[in-house]
Amino acid sequence: MIPITVNGTPRDVDDGLTVASLLSQLGIPEQMALAIERNRSVLPRSTWPEVKVGAGDVFEVVSLVGGG
């Protein structure tokens, strides 16, 4: 297991996960309108199946909500 942070909360996940598999472990449907930032850089959706989750990575996983 490796420590990461997702949306401000620390958690341990399996080593060797891709970002796409991390999403599925988090129970987030990939077809949602999502954006993911890793260590303050946006990860384009096309890279999610390849990019590996690393120890200490900080993720922001966002979507759209009502706002003005």
Binding site: N7, A35, V61, L64, V65, G66, G67
Partner: peptide, 10 residues
């Protein structure tokens, strides 16, 4: 219409 960007509820 505007929409806001917010963390997904985990």
């Amino acid at each position: 219409v505007t929409v806001a960007v917010r963390r997904v509820d985990l």
